[in-house]
Each structure stands twice: as C-alpha cells, then as structure tokens.
Amino acid sequence: MSLSGSPDSMSLLRAAIAKIEASEGLALQKAGRKLPSGGGLPLEMALDGLHEIVPARAGDHAAACGFALALARVLSKAGPAPIFWIVEDFCIHENGMPYGPGLMQMGIDLENLVLIRTSQARDALFAMEEALKAGVGVVIGQIWAMQRFYDLTASRRLALAARAGGFAAIMIYPAAQKPTANEPFGGMASAAVTRVEIASASSVPIAGLGRLAIPGAAQWNLRVMKARASPGIYGERPKRLRFDAQKAVFIQDFTQNVVQNALSVDPSALSRHRPRDAVDAAGAHAKSA
C-alpha cells in the first residue's frame, strides 16, 4: 500500500486537513469576538474564550479572585449577564466564602451572582461546562486539585463550551498549584487563550493622621503568561492595574513604577484629602487618574 498509488486519497486528506484548520486550529488566532474597547486591559481578551488567572504568590489568592470578578464584569459589559461562580468546597474552607458586601463594592449586583459550591473538582468542571454551554453568563471556576483534574482535555472542553455559549470562562488557579514560571508556556498545557499572573500591589495610598498611610483602592500587577490573541505581548514587564467599579473598566497606571514603594508617593499630591473620608478620597483619586 503506497500513498503515491492513490492520488485521490491524498487530495482528500489535504481537503480534510484544510477543513479542520479552518474550523479549529487557526480559528484560535481570530478567536471569536473581542472586547470592543479592550476594557482598559493591556491585552486583547476574547469575550468567548477560556482565560486563566494565576496568583503570583501564596497570599495573592484574594487578589486573583478580585481581578477575576472585575474581568467578569468587563467581559459581560454588553448586558447585565449573570456571573456563575463555581467553587470547590475545599477552596472555601481555605480561603473563605465570597462575601456579599465586598462583592457589591466591586460593582457586582448580588442579584446577578449565582454561587455554586461543589464537593469535588469533577463536579465543578461539569457545572462550569454546563453553565458555559447554556450561554447565560460569564463563568468563574475555582478548583483545588487543579493538577489532577484540570488538564488539556478538561480545558479544551471548557474552551469549546465557552465558544458555543458565547460567554467567557475564567479559571482561577490555587496559589499552591500554580504552573511553574520557568517553562515557556507556564508548565501546565491548556487550551486557554489567555493566562495572566496576578499579584497584589500596593494600593493607592492615602495619607493618614499617624505614622502609617491608609490603604486606598486595590491595585494589581498583571503579567501576561500566555496570550494567543496578541502574541507580541508575552514577556513584557508587569502592568499595574486597578478597577473602576462604577464604569466597569480597568485603569492602567502608567505613572507608577511597579517596584515603587507605596510610601514614597509625594504627600503634597494627597494633602487635600481629609483622612476621615478615606473611601471617598480613594474614589476621587481613581477618577482623576
């Protein structure tokens, strides 16, 4: 049996490969719908893709969750679509329960949030896939035993479900099992279109009465680990971001150096804020920036 003997089969195979590439492989380059304005993000994020968020350090889990929620809001800006937050029980034992008042301050309408707690990682992946296929809103997932259950197949299923439903999937890694940064594409292979590493950064400080400043609006350092839609961005310096909860956009902080200490901000710029109105002051600062 030689291939040269059957030219028809060769052309058939070529046609089949072209078909697969048209529908699957190369389609990732033009990955679905894009965010119209970018939402203030330094990279393009598909509205119907799978995104992974990796906490940079052990304590950055809450920061990663906050970024994921902000991202979910940005990615569902077209309409008030619900957010499905699917968590494995052990994550709640370890990191606490999502807290209503805090969520509201991120601009999340509690009426739009569905919290699904599962006892096993497998159930969480199942629920994520179902919710994505139903196409009713952005799905955030958190599983503890990531390395055991979240592999190429699982992520591929989620990516396809997200594409079919038209809403984004966001997967948050547990800090203890983050993919190693030494390897070029982050160690754990997955079908995600984007993978970003999130570290909590010093907040926008507000001068206090005493020796110490008052913590202001939350900020994150974002490092792109993988971005299929905008490949050039990989390996750039971390970007500092914060989130405007009212307008639901990210604000990039170009002025501040990432390594700058929070305390070395020029106090004269802040002196007009009374320390008592800490929250208001933070909001005003965010608007002016």
Binding site: A62, P101, G102, M104, L110, V279, G283
Partner: peptide, 29 residues
C-alpha cells in the same frame, strides 16, 4: 436558594461611591 427574589427583598444596590465602610471580598468561615 437560587430562586427569584421577592420584590424589594434585596434593597441594597451596588455602588462604588457607597458611604459604607469597605468590606473584604472573602470572609473566612
């Protein structure tokens, strides 16, 4: 339980400039 809220059940609406003191995103059990 995940069922429709009764009318007026959830009176509080989110607002970034809320006068409420800031609250955490995760509350430990």
């Amino acid at each position: 339980p995940a069922a429709p809220f009764q009318a007026g059940q959830n009176r509080l609406k989110p607002s970034a400039a809320s006068p409420l003191p800031e609250r955490p995103l995760h509350l430990l059990k």
